[in-house]
Each structure stands twice: as C-alpha cells, then as structure tokens.
Simulated scan of single mutants.
Amino acid sequence: MTNENRELLKKGIEEFNLVADEKTLDRFKTYRELLAQWNQKMNLTGIDDEKGTYIKHFLDSLSAVTGGYIKDEMSIIDVGTGAGFPGIPLKVCLENTKVTLLDSLNKRINFLQEVCTQLNLENVEFIHGRAEDFGKNPEYREKYDIATARAVAGLPILMEFCVPFIKKGGYFVCLKGPNANLELEESKKAMTTLGIEFVEKIDVKLPETDLNHNILVFKKISETPSKYPRKAGKPAKSPIK
C-alpha cells in the first residue's frame, strides 16, 4: 500500500465519520491483496489496481453509512455480495455488527471465508444460495435490521430479493448508479406490494472520481406477504411492476 493510497483511504473513511485507525487500514490492505490474488484464478472484479479498489469498492461500500441508517451493533444481510461489497467493508469499520453474506456462487463464498479469516472478523455468517430460497426460510425471513445490495439487478427485482429479510421498522439501503430516479419510478408497485416506503435518495461523492453514485433508502412498514419472494428466476423474469 503506497503512503499516498493509505492517506486517501484514511481520509475517505473519516469523511464518513468512521474510525480509520492503523488496524482498520491494515485490514483493508490485506483485503485488497487477497482480492488481487484470488482475482487471478476467478473473476471477482474488473478493478484490481490498489487505488481503484480503495475508491470504487471500499469507500463506495462504506458510503452506505451516509444518513445514519446503518449503525454499529445492527444485523445486516448483504444480498448478492459478490466479492464482499458492501458487507465486508461495513463489518471492518463497524465491528459489532452481525453481518450475513449471501451469494449464489460457492467459489465466491470460499473467497469471503478466507478474507474474514485473514482479517479476524467475527460474527459473519456465509450463505451459499439464492435470495429467493433463503427469503422464505423462517430462520432468515424478517430477521434483519438492514438489507443492503450493491448489485446490478433492476430495483424492483432487488427489492423482491432483499425486502423479505428485513424486520418491520428496518431499512433497505441500496447502492445505485446514475439511473436511480428512473428505477424509483419503476418500483412504486413493488414498494407497495412488499411493504416498504421510500425514505430518501442520497448523492455520494467519492474522492478523485466523477462517478455518479446514489444511496436509496427504504423503510419496512409492514410485513411482506408470504408469497414473496417468488420462486428462483421468477423475480428477474417478471419483476413486480
């Protein structure tokens, strides 16, 4: 880790009002190294230079705390976590959270377990499976304070994947790109159907990039009807619109 990149990461973390002590920075350094190493054998990310990883993965993931909906000691499920974003960066900075990482690819789960072992992160659960199946499982359904996703699916589909996991009064915090407003328009029916209401859209500024990122926040106001999520493949084929 170059001193310049370490400083960039430290400043970025502190701008989100999080603590960037040496231990935290070292953990991110190790995470970046593991990501680069594993990325050679499996496709985890298209961004593997140090600076790009710090800004576009780590700081972007941590931006989810903006607005104060995600706090330490909460239970968080990261749906379709991929290489661990945003779940692992959040866990590194909010050590007392209970984080569940869900992904459908077993190779990625192996990577995530290795990262959490190397970083000495405790209270992390790994689920190899699909959101459509686990969202119906009583052990996981409506059990979390927060569901989050930084996934590529359209918003109505993501809502059906994520909202069943959230307890009433909890939040869905979704990291989105420049099409957030259009996706919100398309999600009105899904919001009503699944039992959430829109709280706010937060624009995120990341250092040294002009990427236009937003965080969309929704509050769970009523229980999700038991028919949701529908069977695997159905939400993507025919989103609630």
Score class of each variant (00 low, 15 high):
Asn137Asp: 15
Gly154Leu: 14
Leu18Ser: 05
Tyr31Cys: 04
Asp133Thr: 15
Gly154Ser: 15
Val92Asn: 02
Leu175Gln: 14
Leu155Trp: 01
Phe218Gly: 08
Asn96Gln: 15
Thr24Ala: 00
Arg230Gly: 12
Phe28Asn: 00
Gln40Thr: 13
Asp133Pro: 07
Ile13Phe: 03
Tyr69Glu: 06
Gln40Cys: 01
Ala151Phe: 00
Ile146Thr: 08
Phe126Met: 07
Lys241Leu: 15
Pro156Cys: 03
Leu119Asn: 12
Tyr144Asn: 11
Asp21Trp: 05
Pro207Met: 08
Tyr171Phe: 15
Lys189Leu: 14
Glu197Arg: 14
Glu4Asp: 13
Pro89Val: 03
Leu216Val: 14
Leu18Glu: 08
Phe165Tyr: 06
Val115Glu: 04
Asn106Ile: 08
Met191Lys: 07
Leu194Ile: 04
Lys176Gly: 01
Lys98Phe: 12
Lys234Ser: 09
Asp60Thr: 08
Thr81Tyr: 06
Asp48Lys: 14
Gly67Gln: 04
Asn123Trp: 08
Pro207Gly: 06
Ile127Lys: 00
Leu206Thr: 10
Thr192Asp: 15
Gly154Cys: 11
Ile88Thr: 12
Leu112Asn: 05
Glu186Leu: 15
Lys41Ile: 15
Val99Leu: 15
Gly80Met: 09
Ile221Ala: 08
Cys93Pro: 08
Thr209Ser: 12
Lys219Cys: 10
Val163Cys: 02
Leu194Ala: 01
Leu175His: 14
Phe28Asp: 06
Ile109Val: 14
Leu101Ile: 03
Glu183His: 11
Ala151Asp: 08
Tyr54Gln: 11
Leu216His: 01
Gln40Ser: 13
Cys174Glu: 05
Val217Gly: 05
Val99Glu: 13
Val65Ala: 05
Glu14Asp: 06
Asp145His: 14
Glu33Trp: 00
Glu15Thr: 02
Gly80Cys: 10
Leu62Ala: 09
Asp203Ala: 15
Glu223Gln: 13
Leu184Gln: 10
Ala64Val: 12
Lys167Thr: 07
Arg150Gln: 02
Pro164Met: 10
Leu25Lys: 00
Asp48Phe: 12
Arg150Asn: 08
Val79Ala: 04
Ser63Ile: 00
Lys56Leu: 09
Glu95Phe: 06
Val79Tyr: 00
Gly52Ser: 13
Ser187His: 10
Ser187Val: 01
Leu102Ala: 09
Ala232Arg: 10
Glu142Ile: 03
Val92Leu: 03
Leu9Lys: 11
Phe198Lys: 12
Lys29Cys: 11
Val92Ala: 07
Thr193Gly: 05
Ile202His: 11
Gly84Val: 08
Ser238Cys: 09
Ser238Met: 12
Met191Leu: 09
Asp145Asn: 12
Glu186Cys: 11
Asn39Leu: 02
Thr97Trp: 07
Leu8Tyr: 10
Lys41Pro: 05
Arg230Ser: 13
Lys29Tyr: 15
Pro235Gln: 03
Pro164Glu: 07
Ser61Tyr: 09
Met74Gly: 03
Lys41Asn: 11
Ile109Leu: 01
Ile127Glu: 07
Leu44Phe: 06
